[in-house]
Amino acid sequence: MSNTLRSRLTPYLFLLPALLFMATFTLYPLVSVGYLSFTEYNILRPAQPVGLANYQRLIGDGVFWLSLRNSFTYLLVTPVIIVSAITLAIIVNRPLLGIGVFRALYYIPVITGAVAVGIAWQFLFDGSGGPINGMLLSAGMIEKPIIFLTEPAWTLPIAMMMTTWMGVGYYMVVFLAGLQSIPEDLYDAARIDGCNEFQKHWHISVPGLRPSIVFVAVISSLSALKVFDEIYVLTNGTGGILNSGSTMVFYLWKQAFRLQNVGYASAIAMVLLVITLTFSIINVRMLERGEG
């Protein structure tokens, strides 16, 4: 091989492994799921083209709409996460003795994994004598225990609380990095102007964190749209009574891998793809505005 040809090929050879894996495990599956969404397929027999039938079926499927609505409701975790993570970041940004230990403690829920956390939560929220019910009872806030885990109205809120609880430590670190890049002079100026602690953060920290806020909003909302683990663990894989906790990815999983409706599940996947794409475009616009 001549030297020039070799040097011209070099960059592609470096990229080759990554591109091969990308083509096999990301691009091909995307095309394939698009094709499957127009077929009827149950793994056992070859896929039969059925045109738009799967999409028509979606329109009349109440559980699909419920899952869609639940996935959008789930987006409410984003503002809650942002507010709590910023508050926590402000608190741990003080040079107090042992602050590193506290930061580490807040980080533990991020790394422990959804199954172990879900088990802890099922225990805390148990309806027959879990600690949360115990506290509410002794505080006189309720008269009899709430059966949190099987009550349809509570399935989604508890999963959302779990997502928030598992995520806050991670986003706290993001905001902490943001806070530490805000010039100290700004706070000194605010002190001289007679701002109190709250005003100081409201007028300086929050505007200064804007790029981090946009970043966290993007990341946490995209992961809220594809939530699965929390629902799966908390409802023992059922999705809750009357599908009350079913989300887009959960319903996709259930149709594909529990009910073997692979074609129909692929159509759900395509809807999810369109939603995430739309969301990402909105997010990129926001990012551009946030940085400009």
């Binding site: 990301t26 091909y28 799921v33 594809k226 594909a256 692929s266 999810l272 793809l273 995430t276």
Partner: peptide
């Protein structure tokens, strides 16, 4: 662009593969 695609979408063809 692949950053945007949720991995969950690739699970059905991934399973068949």
């Amino acid at each position: 662009a692949t950053l945007i695609v949720p991995a969950e979408l690739t699970f059905i063809p991934g399973y068949i593969l």
